[in-house]
Simulated assay, not measured.
Amino acid sequence: MTTVLVSGDDFIAPELFSAALSESLPSAGLTFRTLRTRWPNEPFGPVGADGQGNGGVKEASGTEEQVLEALGDASVALTQMAPFTARVIREAPALKFIGVARGGPVNVDLAAATAAGIPVTLTPGRNAAAAAEFAVGLILAAMRRITQADAALKEGIWRGDYYAYENAGLELDGATVGLVGYGAIGSIVARVLRAFGAHVLVSDPYADQARAHADGVELTALEDLLRRSSVVSLHARVTPETRHLLNADNLALLPEGAVLVNSARGELLDYAPLPGLLESGARRARPRRLRHRAAPGRLAAAQGPQRHHHPHLAGATRQTADRAALITAGEAARFLRGEPLRHVANPEVLTGS
């Protein structure tokens, strides 16, 4: 009999984990213990850090006490957001496996897990389709002024001036689009953009050239991509190497009227120079005057540069939750069967090095 903690939340419910694992191991004699935290209806944050912010884990939901009480004698834990801090790992000696249903297990103290000999798995690509669709949606919204026209109409403004040639939107067909990063998400975005008829540039030092050629995209340096692209979309992970990958120096390379989409992580982009670039007129900043239909004869100055702001929703689909639970449960099933794991965050545990 194996006791398993399924720690879910309001996005990936505990039942998704238990159903997926039960399907993978129908006759394994599993006993489930359950914990449900309130993310995303309650925000995540750091857990277990000292007063100076040292130690602990980040982007976690729930408390150490909740996790320890729910764990009991469980040897396997499946979670998305629950905090597996050094304290939790130290006070749960029965724990032998932690499966995390997200792209990076930032809610787990990897050093503590490694020291305890506990493999920690993750779920790369769980939200790739969702994030790719969202990025393409943002690109289309910016190029065709969808969100501005919607917001204006709700305020009683009929944006008929968008049919004026100088204000009209742009098509993806024939456009050059640059993708910074060509992993699971970037490659899907490229496939969709090429279906629209776009020429796709890719900047990614780790991209496979043969694969890029087969996919019909052009690999190039970041500076060349920025100079040539009318649309740039970011799809890289945040590392010390990629933090502020786009900054004041290279953002100035973008052509006038370029669309910049960041549906990945905020730290890829240095936001400090953006207001200056936008207000200077360097990025699609052609001022115009609009007629306010709710008050005939009244004129209002346009905002000039276009800005689209959205919550971090790129991965928020039901399929993402289902897929994440299935991948995590699959790793747990392989662990319990003694089979090789596929997505291990601390592989040194497996090699003993």
Rank of each mutant, 00 (worst) to 15 (best):
L138Y: 10
Y271G: 10
A175P: 09
W158A: 02
P311I: 01
S263D: 11
A168N: 11
R286P: 09
V232M: 03
S263K: 04
A74C: 15
G174V: 06
A130Y: 05
R342H: 14
D161V: 09
R342M: 12
D173R: 08
K58F: 10
G51S: 13
D208M: 07
V232Q: 02
R102G: 13
L35K: 02
G51Y: 11
A198G: 11
L254E: 04
P240N: 05
A252N: 15
Q52S: 15
A345T: 10
E42G: 12
G266C: 12
D10Q: 11
R87N: 15
L225F: 12
Q319E: 15
L234C: 10
D50M: 09
V349K: 00
D208F: 01
P275H: 07
S280E: 14
S203F: 07
E331D: 12
P105G: 05
D204Y: 06
P14T: 03
P26M: 01
R87V: 13
R337L: 13
E331C: 07
R144L: 03
T34W: 04
P46V: 02
I185L: 08
S18Y: 04
T123W: 05
W39D: 15
A302C: 13
A28D: 14
A324K: 04
G281M: 08
G72W: 03
T63I: 12
D150N: 07
T220L: 04
D208L: 01
V192I: 15
A314W: 03
A321N: 01
H309Y: 14
I188L: 15
P311V: 02
L201D: 08
P275G: 03
A264R: 00
V6M: 04
E69P: 15
L68P: 15
V180W: 02
N250E: 12
G330E: 00
S230M: 09
V88G: 00
E267T: 12
P83N: 00
D224F: 03
S187N: 10
V192G: 04
A272N: 12
G315K: 01
A190T: 11
L5Q: 02
T114S: 14
L201I: 05
L269I: 00
A301F: 13
F97I: 07
T121V: 11
G276Y: 01
N54M: 12
V349R: 02
E171P: 05
A345D: 11
R90L: 11
R33Q: 14
V100R: 01
N54D: 14
R243V: 14
G99F: 01
G352K: 04
G125N: 07
T85F: 01
V177S: 06
Y165M: 06
L234W: 07
A325R: 03
L299Y: 14
L245V: 08
R323D: 15
F84G: 00
S353E: 14
R243I: 10
A115G: 15
N54L: 13
V67C: 09
E256M: 05
E59A: 08
G186M: 05
A264Y: 09
H308M: 12
L172G: 08
G104I: 09
A210W: 08
E331I: 06
R87I: 09
A135M: 05
P275W: 00
N247H: 09
A128R: 05
P347Y: 00
V100W: 03
T79P: 03
T3H: 11
R288V: 05
I98A: 04
Q66K: 06
L234N: 06
